[in-house]
Design a protein around this nucleic acid. Sequence first.
DNA 1: ATGGTATATGTCGGATATGACATACCGTCA
DNA 2: TGACGGTATGTCATATCCGACATATACCAT
Lengths: 104, 104
Amino acid sequence: MKAATRKKLEKKGWKVGSAAELLGLTPEEACYIEMKLALSRALREQRQKHRLTQVQTAKQLKSSQSRVAKMEAGDSSVSIDLLVRSLLALGASPKAVAKSIQSA
Amino acid sequence: MKAATRKKLEKKGWKVGSAAELLGLTPEEACYIEMKLALSRALREQRQKHRLTQVQTAKQLKSSQSRVAKMEAGDSSVSIDLLVRSLLALGASPKAVAKSIQSA
DNA sequence: ATGGTATATGTCGGATATGACATACCGTCA
DNA sequence: TGACGGTATGTCATATCCGACATATACCAT
């Protein structure tokens, strides 16, 4: 993992191990996080493709602007569940969702 | 949706609409549920491929037998999150996960 | 500067998911 | 039949997630 990525993750609340257990992420954990980040990016792209603001998107998702922001930021408080449901609600195809995940 | 599928879903606690709103699932909701079911099947296949019991799998996942059963049953109390994390923990590749999702 | 719009971050109460336990339901074998 | 290994179902306390709100930051106009 690149140092920059690592720092970013730590800031967001991910338990990326301390110095002692540097790189303490198991491959599965890393993979899971990357999936989430991939879905985050897909969500932002989907929103921007339709020229929507986060506020508009939030309304469409029956959620709030702050949660949309967190989703796009890959915040540790958002689940894959929410990301997938949101993508689908914004009109992304299952195929597109799969593609995002696969690229992780 | 086939009637059998519907009955199965209702039993598991899915809010598959009442008679008045028959087929009241939006395409996204239906799609989301199908993804979960696809992942459930993948999980069972992954487990069986390695000739593991649910108890053994539970230990590997640091969970319980009952939760593994619910995961494989597509119970409404299990999230896509858990399914994905479990599949990865059992050694499934991101590619395989994506494939399951895509087929939904 | 001041206002306006878009996005980001922090926090919190209520909602949902999770692991664990108990228990029920199979098959199969002695 | 009864015992046993495996799976399913029901429930519960706790942990985690979610929507919402407040507030902060950033950029662009006037």
